[in-house]
Design a protein around this nucleic acid. Structure first.
Length: 423
RNA sequence: GGUGAGAUGGCUGAGUGGUCGAAAGCAUAUCUUUGCUAAAGAUACGUAGCCUUACCGCUACCGAGGGUUCGAAUCCCUCUCUCACCGCCA
């Protein structure tokens, strides 16, 4: 959520920055401004009337004690109360409307975020490793997975539906190995605090991180309980501190969490994805940080480096791109995507998206911290995948496939996995 | 699911209709004093909004939402959560 004071004081700047995104928000900003003015007029009037009522009511108390007749002033207060109710309705509806509008406004792209219209204009930041070469035609992970009995898409469709998969045997073992490997790396080497959160959350949590109210159709919902299946661990983990005032010495907070993620992917059916690449349910290890505003940009770099380390240790070729203003997510102010090379696909696959949200999420979830002067300030939140599992599985299997159809297990995983290859 | 108890400021904990945003203690910060570690005293110390250059001031908030009343932390209703016991269960 944008700071209303920022919009009030510098509306043109806000519009200008929002204009670099896809989507037109200028009229929303204008509506926020006019609502804000109306709201404050009504609010001031209401508070004045409430003050009158409080004062007179006290007088009544005193007069009654002295045995005086108070029926006349009681009637006066009744009149004030009617006006409070009227003006209060205006103030409340303006307040509600203003909040609705603010929740529908995306974050301002950071000055450091490259300006551009679409994904084609995302600059490449760096490349690690080289595309592996094969003396045979590399196979797709769906072929390899089914040959080796690791992936059963028919079973997934049978018990749940399309875009669900059953991992079996060595496939299930590899998935479990990767989860342990990632969590161990981030908690032990990178120093993150491990979290294992609930997978169902209240709507407030999704408002806090930005999925609601605008993107409710992408999330699974249980109406009887009014609970949502998490689309990413970002939601429960960041909301751990919703409505809290953190102490300065608690920052930065670094959390790592493994969870399954559930996404309806409404509107993206038949986008030409094969196999594991776009599923309704997938596993992910997520990294979340809460930092002071001063350090968030540096923390974004280290967060991205922590995610990259995964691919380096697994020996997987990847590139890092920076999202331009036309392509960054709704709540993000700056984002790096990490894309791993998948030989069987002949493309790069996004396995991590590392973003800083500035104070945007913290405002939405009413998260604050006390600075060194004891003043409440709004911290910054960041998160990035470290990494998504299904696509990592794809890249791993396709990169390490052998001519005989077996899969070599990279050195870093052998201890966890307990074998050198899958055959 | 059932029964009972509870929900007040960072914590403990008073407060059952009027000057209560809320006693007291603890914790914290600053200052003063006593020649160290320590102790005593003074002051400050919730969140948000409105109005303000600022100070001041005003308003709201005692789990949440409604209601009664001139006036509610206090009375009534609904809900949520916590704890205990019972039932059920991985």
């Amino acid at each position: 959520m944008l700071d209303i004071r920022l919009i009030r004081d510098t509306p043109d700047l806000v519009k200008e920055r929002l204009a670099t995104r896809s989507g037109d928000y200028a009229s929303v900003v204008d509506e926020v401004l006019s609502i804000d003015t109306a709201r404050r007029v009504a609010e001031t009037e209401r508070q004045k009337l409430q003050g009158d009522r409080n004062r007179i009511s006290k007088e009544i108390g005193i007069a009654k004690k002295n045995g005086q007749d108070t029926s006349a002033i009681e009637a006066e207060v009744r009149g004030i109360n009617e006006r409070i109710e009227q003006i209060g309705r205006d103030a409340d509806s303006a307040d509600t409307r203003q909040r609705e509008l603010l929740l529908g406004l995306p974050n301002l792209p950071h000055e450091a975020c490259p300006v551009g219209h679409s994904a084609e204009e995302n600059p490449e930041v760096r490349v690690w490793g080289k595309k592996p070469t094969f003396e045979f035609e590399p196979k797709d992970h769906t072929v390899l997975g089914q040959q080796l009995g690791m992936l059963d898409f028919e079973a997934g469709a049978k018990i749940t539906g399309s875009a669900f998969v059953v991992y079996r045997g060595q496939g299930a073992r590899l998935e479990r190995t990767l989860i342990n490997f990632l969590l161990d790396l981030h908690t032990t080497v990178h120093g993150y605090h491990e979290i294992s959160p609930p997978l169902l959350v209240k709507p407030e949590c999704l408002v806090g991180t930005g999925q609601l109210p605008k993107f409710g159709d992408q999330v699974y919902h249980s109406p009887e309980d009014n609970l949502y299946l998490i689309p990413t661990a970002e939601v429960p983990v960041t909301n751990l501190h919703r409505d809290e005032i953190l102490k300065l010495d608690q920052l930065p907070i670094n959390y790592a969490a493994y969870t399954p993620c559930f996404r309806r992917e409404a509107g993206s059916a038949g986008l030409g994805t094969r196999g594991l690449i776009r599923m309704h349910q997938f596993d992910k290890v997520e990294l979340v940080k809460i930092t002071t505003p001063e350090t968030s940009m540096a923390e974004l770099e280290s967060l991205t480096a922590n995610a990259e380390k995964v691919l380096q240790l697994l020996g997987l070729h990847y590139r890092v791109i920076e999202l331009c203003t036309g392509d960054i997510g709704f709540g993000s102010t700056k984002t790096y995507d990490i894309e791993v090379w998948a030989p069987g696909q002949g493309t790069y696959l996004e396995v991590s998206s590392c973003s800083t949200f500035g104070d945007y999420q913290a405002r939405r979830m009413n998260l604050r911290y006390k600075d060194e002067n004891g003043k409440n300030k709004v911290p910054h939140t960041l998160n990035g995948s470290g990494t998504a599992l299904a696509r990592l599985f794809v890249a791993l299997v396709e990169t390490y496939q052998q001519s005989d159809g077996s899969i070599l297990i990279p050195e870093a995983l052998r201890g966890h996995f307990g074998a050198e290859k899958i055959a």
